[in-house]
Amino acid sequence: MHMILKKRIKKIVIKIVVICRGRALQSAAKSDPQVMGELRRWDKSLIILMQVLPKGPGMILSKQGRELRYLGSTQKQADLVINFKNIECAFPVMAGFMSAETGFAQNRMTVKGDIPLAMSLIRCINRILTFLFPGFISRRILKRVAPFTLKEQIIRLKILTLGIPFGH
């Protein structure tokens, strides 16, 4: 019973993280030059699905024109699918204890689709992690974290105050 409860709590945490990360990505795609630069190289219209097997939670991202939209977790046919093998594989990566790169290195995830696109997505995710987490956490999980400029501090403030709560 104790283990089932723990698993449910982890699932709830991941659901919350997915919403925060999805909205942060949507917001960064409008304001952060690094994320915008990555997005420019993607096809004009594509769908990305990141999900925990077997039954979620998941995150759907859709690029429409120049914008990236977070579309919740409704299952869709996607151009790039990143699957976490199970909730225990997903939790350290989603909860910020481990980078996506380490997650891949530990065989926690599978990728269906273009590897260059997956690499670009990981760079975007790493970038928003630096906005979402304080420096002492992001420096622990990412290979390199550069100090923020004033402009980047403003972008971070926008993502945290408008992006995550309101999706702007």
């Binding site: 790169e101 891949f104 590897i115 997956a118 690499m119 990981i122 290979k143 390199r144």
Partner: peptide, 13 residues
């Protein structure tokens, strides 16, 4: 080079 999956496994960024 930036598109290559091998970079993800490199110890240094």
């Amino acid at each position: 080079t930036m598109d290559d999956g091998a970079l993800g496994f490199n110890p240094e960024a």
